[in-house]
Design a protein around this nucleic acid. Structure first.
Length: 508
RNA sequence: GGCCCGUUCGUCUAGGGGUUAGGACGCGUCCCUUUCACGGACGAAACACGGGUUCGAUUCCCGUACGGGCUACCA
């Protein structure tokens, strides 16, 4: 029988969770949902020197906002395998237990080398033209460890609590082969793998040991993580093997990375000209916060949709999908192997698609606070009508203001291009006549205005519609003009027209 | 440098031994439009290169180039 699907997202709380991490979480989530499995949040806080206050809370909040909540783990009610923080699990002694098992079977050993000694070794290697110095089957013979030191001395050091780490004893020359769900078979020679530290001198496990112990203990079925982990996977295979747990090893899936749109490499929060965090993130060590997708006006559904299609696609041409739709058809077979450059323009387009799916009422409710902030009081029906007209022009809710503020505030400036080209004595005369004509309009709505405008032209001559637009709104573009006039209202429209006619000077 | 992974329009991608190599973003042209936009139509735009294998390779294999990742008592 197939193992129950249990996947985990296991970030370390060293900062805000960026979009690459969110996508890893998302793929875990989708896979778990697809198979009615469990999605676990485990906090990998084994590096005490890199702990950042607020990071864990941020991760929890980000997953919530994104709509991909784990059903087990830190911040989500824990579960049968608690605790879910590695610093707390360390207190249980489980990592030490596994490390000792490896030592007992001769697959790990104590190393007493100081940082200075390690540094010296590296220098020596470099001087000997070794480009990638590593602590391995060859070099460990010249270092201070339980493999080179006499047994009594090792015992003495251990009894005296001398600082030491536990290292994995990697064989000198052995093919390590493993299968990745996304990439297929990968082969690496053990000579390329160093003797990884398993237990640090502060007693904390490293990632390499900790994640394996926890994946086993938590009965994880699939380890889904970024491609940056691919090179250390062979070491992990060895650990499972030496622990006698190779048959319980989770299946591996290494996701392609999200790359910078321009230039190269992984997305960097500092250089990006688009948000990289789901929610705004203020690092306690830095001054300026990084703005998030949420605060930039993205719908979480849109954000998730964008991320999902970076590296995965359903195989048809469908792009706009709810998280439920995606979960129903998600499959690692359809995850691509190559990195994907993020396209900020397409991200905006996605948000626009989601914005258009909102009802006018919902849009109005979203936009209302912006108006209130500007000190503008309008009833909801008015704002609903406004949103209905302007929504075709915007990709984000906050753009409603920039695109349509003239509805609420009479323009003070008028599009120069249009004015200089069209504003003259003849037109002034024509629009004065139009003003008189409009004054008599009884039913001020889009249809009658359209008709009245047509009638007026028959009587007084050809009127320039764009010029009328500029006189009323100040700008050359916008929604359907008569709809706009109807919304602005008779009194205000006529006032504006009157004022414009009498105050705008001729260009020449 | 070494090791690992990758390479289809500018970008995200579909496809896969014989296709007019499909879609989306962006870009351009046209239509609709007494303004504006939406919308619609159309267009430019890709299989990195060289060797194999094959009747036939963009598709399979090998090199090369290029890109990315890793190379810590960080994850």
């Amino acid at each position: 029988m197939e193992k129950r699907v249990r996947v985990r997202f296991a970030p370390s709380p060293t900062g805000g969770l960026h979009m690459g991490g969110v996508r890893t979480a998302l793929f875990n989530y989708l896979f778990a949902k697809k198979h009615n499995g469990d999605f676990i949040l485990r906090i990998e806080d084994t590096d005490q020197t890199r702990f950042v206050a607020g990071a864990e809370e941020y991760i929890v909040n980000a997953l919530k906002w994104c709509g991909i909540p784990p059903n087990e783990g830190v911040g989500f009610g824990d579960g049968p395998h608690k605790p879910y923080r590695q610093s707390e699990r360390k207190e249980l002694g489980i990592y030490k237990r596994y490390a000792e098992k490896l030592i007992a079977s001769g697959h790990a050993y104590y190393a007493f080398d100081t940082n200075a000694e390690l540094e010296e070794m590296r220098k020596r290697m470099e001087a000997a033209k070794v480009v990638a110095p590593q602590y391995n089957a060859v070099t460990r013979q010249n270092m201070r460890n339980s493999l080179t030191l006499p047994e009594e001395e090792v015992k003495k050091l251990l009894d005296a609590n001398a600082p030491h780490v536990v290292r994995l004893k990697v064989p000198r020359n052995e093919e390590i082969r493993f299968e990745d769900i996304i990439r297929g078979w990968v082969t690496v020679n053990s000579s390329q793998v160093d003797d990884k530290v398993l237990l640090k001198s502060d007693g904390m496990p490293t990632y390499h040991l900790a994640h394996i112990v926890d994946d086993i203990e938590m009965q994880i079925s699939h380890a889904v993580r970024g491609e940056e982990w691919l090179p250390s996977a062979p070491a992990h295979i060895l650990i499972y093997r030496y622990l006698g747990l190779e048959n319980q090893m989770p299946k591996l899936a290494h996701l392609p990375l999200i790359l910078n749109p321009d230039g190269n490499g992984k997305i960097s929060k500092r250089e990006a000209r688009f948000p990289v965090f789901p929610l705004s993130w203020k690092d306690p060590r830095e001054n300026a916060p990084f703005i998030g997708y949420k605060e930039s006006g993205y719908y979480s559904d849109a954000f998730i949709n964008i991320l999902a299609l970076l590296g995965w696609n359903p195989g048809d041409n469908k792009e706009i999908m709810s998280i439920e739709e995606m979960a129903a058809i998600f499959d690692f077979e359809r995850v691509s192997k190559s990195g994907a450059k993020f396209d900020p323009d397409k991200a905006k387009w996605f948000n626009q698609q989601y914005l258009r799916k909102q009802s006018d009422l919902d849009l109005a409710k979203e936009f209302m606070p912006v108006l209130i902030e500007k000190g503008i009081v309008k009833d909801e029906n008015f704002v609903v009508e406004f949103c209905k007209l302007v929504k075709e022009k915007v990709q984000f809710t906050h753009e409603f203001w920039e695109q349509g503020k003239y509805v609420f505030i009479a323009p003070k400036t008028f599009d120069e291009k249009v004015i200089s080209k069209k504003w003259n004595a003849t037109n002034k005369d024509l629009f004065n006549k139009l003003l008189t004509k409009f004054t008599t309009v009884a039913t001020w709505n889009s249809q009658t205005l359209h008709d009245e405008f047509a009638n007026a032209q028959n009587e007084i001559g050809k009127l320039d519609m764009q010029l009328l637009r500029v006189l009323i709104t100040g700008v050359a573009g916008g929604p359907q003009l008569f709809d706009l006039l109807a919304l602005i209202g008779k009194d205000e429209s006529l006032n504006r027209l009157n004022h414009a006619i009498n105050s705008i000077p001729f260009a020449n």
